[in-house]
Design a protein around this nucleic acid. Structure first.
Length: 506
RNA sequence: GGGCGCGUAGCUCAACUGGCAGAGCAGCUGACUCUUAAUCAGCUGGUUGAGGGUUCAAGUCCCUCCGCGCUCACCA
């Protein structure tokens, strides 16, 4: 408790950096030694002529090793093999890794001792020398001079087994990325997915836009929002649950093809397919309908797969899936009939639907409160698990889709589809509702559902109705869950494996 | 929120029906001038997630809490 006892350890360590164990203490000791030698362990600049990959390529492409390939390299030390008067190490950078060879004869006694005693795995080092090939065939750098460029004070995960603990992997993702090559590949793939998506949309003439994340009113999806507060305006704001209503305002505005790739926030549970913040691509195309969006979806996904993986054939959790267009299309009615025996075109009321379910011996346990919700329940329970896909399921109950246009000749349905790959929803799209009066009615119906206890019902957005009154052309809209697309393309079962910093407690 | 499982050294993992908390890697000391999971000798390293209980004795059994995973519910 007393000051004398509490502040005992190493006077040269700043408060807050007390060593938690001897491994850190050993590195702090080295740091101290370096400073005593007048060496700055964190110099402001580093010099290098080649990345690790460039150094190796330069050597290999040199015609006949007559002229030496001189290089200056820099990177993180990831392995260290001391063999008496010589020493091998590997350094890595984002382009790869290269082996370094140090010899006492080349460096001199003092320099070699400094190297031996003051460096650790994890440190960043700058070296200069020339490239050569070892007896065992590895292209390496023969180092004649070196310099510390950043001292590491915390040990890295073990070299062979790497870092496996899931919680540490998520909480200290930097360690995960350093230690686990496969993880790095997933996030590189993720970046390429987004790049390919942009290319595809840009090539088709879509304009990338940005719309508000902080919104006075949320909408565009059935979900509970996060709330926040703006002090200067003294008002409640919501984090968006979708981009939809703003993007359609831009269709009204005459920007005929727009898209946005951005973060949405939904105040809901967390599981292997849901993170409270996630990335959504939404695009809207004037003078198009939902069939155009189907073509857009399958073409885009196939293009992205080809760009990122080099093929449209993928394996997802053991299932072989070919994303090559065209994807099979099923009406919701047909596919429900196929897997459950219930015909929702015949059973068009909640009562008759439940009767038909009893007839087919389907459990009614989670019976929906309305016809549309019951249809959704049947679909999720009996159809969705079969949809390894890719597949389009089209023509949804109107009640579930307050922003979609009604299907001509089918009063209970709207022109909407969802795309399924690997057994879960990847995309959602519809012919956008552009009738302002019908839209108002749909919002009012949502209000009734909310009054009946549905927390996810969408609030009436008068400002959006007003935009529709100005006039929106027939328009097709599409949303693709980017995280889920990355899951499918990288064969990951959990959304946390494709989000760098997934939501965790505390 | 419910059910099931997990939490041991910096990392990866052991520890039988309760019986002295261990190994490999990493670290430290030494040997070794083409190694690559280098090798060899020696040494150090623990609030067994936290708190309580049962017991002569708890990593192990019981309770509460924290965290993580899977799953159901909820939810696109």
């Amino acid at each position: 408790m007393s000051q004398e006892v509490a502040s005992q350890p190493s006077a040269n360590i700043p408060a807050g950096l007390e060593p938690e164990n001897e491994l850190i203490q050993a590195r702090l000791d080295k740091l101290q030694r370096l400073r005593e030698q007048g060496i700055d362990p964190y110099p402001p600049r580093v010099a290098r002529t080649h990345t690790t990959a460039q150094a190796i390529t330069a050597f290999e492409s040199a015609a006949d090793g007559t002229a030496p390939i001189n290089v200056q390299l820099a990177g993180r030390i990831i392995s260290w093999r001391l063999m008496g008067r010589s020493l091998f190490a590997h350094i890595s950078d984002s382009t790869g890794r290269v082996q370094l060879y140090f010899k006492k004869d080349d460096l001199g006694e003092e320099s070699y001792e400094h190297l031996k005693h003051d460096f650790d795995i994890g440190d960043f080092i700058q070296v200069s020398g020339y490239m050569f090939r070892t007896k065992t065939g590895e292209v390496s750098g023969h180092i004649t001079a070196y310099r510390l460029v950043s001292k590491s004070l915390h040990p890295l995960p073990e070299k062979w087994h790497g870092l496996k603990d899931v919680e540490t992997r998520y909480r200290q993702r930097y360690l995960d990325l350093i230690a686990n090559e496969e993880v790095r590949k997933i996030f590189i793939a993720r970046s390429r997915v987004v790049t390919a998506m942009r290319h595809f949309l840009d090539d088709r003439g879509f304009l990338e836009v940005e719309t508000p994340i902080l919104q006075p009113l949320y909408g565009g999806a059935s979900a509970r929002p996060f709330e926040t507060y703006h002090k200067a305006l003294d008002r409640k704001l919501f984090l968006r649950i979708s981009d939809e209503l703003y993007l359609k305002r831009l269709i009204v505005a005459g920007l005929d093809k727009v898209y946005e790739i951005g973060r949405d926030f939904r105040n809901e549970g967390i599981d292997t397919k849901h993170n409270p913040e996630f990335t959504m691509m939404e695009c809207y195309q004037a003078y198009a309908d939902y069939t155009d969006m189907m073509e857009l979806t399958e073409s885009m996904v196939a293009f992205i797969a080809t760009q990122v993986l080099g093929a449209t054939k993928i394996t997802y959790q053991g299932q072989e899936i070919d994303l090559r267009p065209p994807w099979p299309r099923y009406t919701m009615r047909d596919i429900i009939l196929k897997y459950s025996g219930v015909d929702i075109a015949v059973s068009t009321t909640l009562e008759s639907l439940r009767a038909a379910m009893r007839e087919q011996n389907l459990k009614e346990a989670d019976a929906g409160p309305t016809w549309g919700k019951q249809v959704d329940e049947i679909f999720k329970a009996y159809v969705e698990p079969h949809l390894s896909g890719p597949a389009f399921v089209m023509d949804y109950p109107v009640e579930l889709s307050p922003l979609a246009k009604r299907k001509p000749g089918a009063p209970l349905l709207v022109e909407r589809f969802e795309a399924f790959v690997g057994g879960f929803e990847l995309a959602n799209a519809f012919s956008e509702l552009n009738d302002p009066l019908d839209q108002r009615e749909r919002f009012l119906d949502q209000g009734r559902q909310q009054a009946a206890g549905d927390e996810d019902a969408q609030p009436l957005d008068e400002d959006y109705i007003q935009a529709l009154m100005v006039g929106m052309p027939p328009t097709g809209g599409l949303g693709i869950g980017v995280d889920r697309l990355v899951m499918v393309l990288t064969d990951q079962a959990s959304i946390r494996e494709v989000i760098l910093f997934p939501q965790l407690r505390t």
